[in-house]
Design a protein around this nucleic acid. Sequence first.
DNA 1: CCAATCGGATAAAACGTTTTATCACCAGTA
DNA 2: TACTGGTGATAAAACGTTTTATCCGATTGG
Lengths: 350, 350
Amino acid sequence: MNHEIGIVDVAKAAGVSIATVSNVINGKGRVSGETRRKVERIIAELGYTPNLPARHLKTNRSDLIGVVVPTMQPGRLQDNPFYWDLLAGVEEGARDGRYHVILTGIDEERETLAFVKERRLDGLIVVGAGEGSPLVPRVAALGVPAVFIDSYLRSPELNQVVLDDRSGAHAATAHLIGLGHRRIALLTGDMPPEQLPYFGVLYERLLGYRDALEEAGLPYEGDLLLRLPTSLEGGFEAARHVAALPDVTAAFAFSDVMAMGLVKGLREQGKRVPHDYSVVGFDNLFVSEYTAPALTTVSQDILAKGRVAVRMLLGQIDGVGDPARRIVLPAELIVRETTGPAGAANARNN
Amino acid sequence: MNHEIGIVDVAKAAGVSIATVSNVINGKGRVSGETRRKVERIIAELGYTPNLPARHLKTNRSDLIGVVVPTMQPGRLQDNPFYWDLLAGVEEGARDGRYHVILTGIDEERETLAFVKERRLDGLIVVGAGEGSPLVPRVAALGVPAVFIDSYLRSPELNQVVLDDRSGAHAATAHLIGLGHRRIALLTGDMPPEQLPYFGVLYERLLGYRDALEEAGLPYEGDLLLRLPTSLEGGFEAARHVAALPDVTAAFAFSDVMAMGLVKGLREQGKRVPHDYSVVGFDNLFVSEYTAPALTTVSQDILAKGRVAVRMLLGQIDGVGDPARRIVLPAELIVRETTGPAGAANARNN
DNA sequence: CCAATCGGATAAAACGTTTTATCACCAGTA
DNA sequence: TACTGGTGATAAAACGTTTTATCCGATTGG
């Protein structure tokens, strides 16, 4: 007799049909104020809670949106405490729309994405799948509303939200140039150059760097690009190379973790920051303000990124919202203590 | 005619009953090798994928496990890049068991947890709900398998996985004592003392600190406890108080972020670490190795925490596994550069 | 006064599975 | 021969919703 109470029990107790109860729950068909109130009272009394799987079977939906992140995708800033904020933004937005978020890390090569169809996911948010990623066509083929974060995909059919990486990198580089630096090393990450466009985020930052050089009439020199992993260790190792490059007085790292590794590495070489070298990072991690010295960096509002993406996705799901577009979020340069005027070291040396 | 193909289509195409198809899918009833192969072939040919909501309706399950985290719970180290690793561990473990993870941040006071029943979640992982939290009885009342992470709940009925905070704190304190420090400031967080036991993690660390003092025959002095927020800012502010405490030569912070704030604050006061003050943190964040100086801290394997928790939960769901227990994971002291012998400053001053 | 409209409610048919009870068949055994 | 037991397969009854088509007044319009 320990039977979960369902819509039929409510109907019976209220003396109405189950269709009416359903209508009350979903606020759909026509039902008089009086019966509505009665049904609602009964629902509360009985403590009825709907059986969502049943509803989902009938409606062919799931009220679930999937967030897909790469588990170990090379070239991503995988060690960053980056995803959490993003996820927090998504989750918050989804919950307002009575959706829930289902998270899954995927293996680029193998993953079949079958669960999307199986579970009848209502939408998908894909993080960090670049232009060349096999994931992109696979997701598109699913026929499910989707939005890509940090992807810079060329197809105008796809919904995207990205940071204005190019402007951010431009601002960072221009800041260094304004301080008198002429040769600025670049820590780009270690993917092969011909693949760089596939990692759109990094490519855009490279473009921003070039923009700023060009604007200042400075040459873009290939030997200033350091291809090392986008990690603390990579940045640390980069210090050796930076120190060996003649006339280089500044470095721009494409992530804060790299920048932190670099600062540490430079110090171990006996170099001081910003006295001997200026350093700029990218991301503005919450710790970047508290490193010593505090890191000059490009800030992005990751939480907002998540919020914007989910809002866009829900719009797609509900059929409202523009057919497809790319939303670009602003990047902001935050000047702290790792950057200073060029020539300080030279002045001392002379 | 654009009809999603279901189990009936497979059955028709294979010339068998739907029951048989169901059996081969689930590997349940008896079905001959021959027909099994035939059905499997048809399934592949037709590209059939099961409709999970339908299955879930029938089986009254969801193959979903929920992860519940506090959104803004006071006293938690909310800014830490902590949750992501935990979640990664959980997700990995769940996926092996064909479960998926549904994430939700909850508002302690308001949240009704209704979605657990509505969606027929198979299990719940609750993070950081202390002994006094209203969440705990609510989860227990749900009657769903659950495991609590970082909770230190007294009830032996509840499944828990925690770090060995007490031993970790003991090791940290003993390390400082071994270096000759006699008065060690403690950055505990800012919850009122009488509520401290509710934040089990912090309380255990306090106990570990006391253990070490007692072992060394040192007094436990209440005025060494600094009640400031468990954040970078809190640690930063603590520096003023630490500097004002007579004869204090070391500090133990209950999180790395606090420790980092403290180091920064001390430096702004003109104090050097570890020359004037030794500092120990807790957590071993991935950045802690790269701060300057590198942080001495207590390390915990957060990924493993997630993995262990989900394994425990799946055991509960499947009915195997011990009825209920508390798993304690080891903590390890990592000595880096923020700790050094006491008396260095005194020696200089004299 | 008849037809048309409308508000309120309902019966019953799905939705795509799993599962229980049953069946047909055959081989061995009494 | 009749019975038992096992193997392979199936028909049909759920599971708890949503939704479509229908119905029954009562009101309105001509």
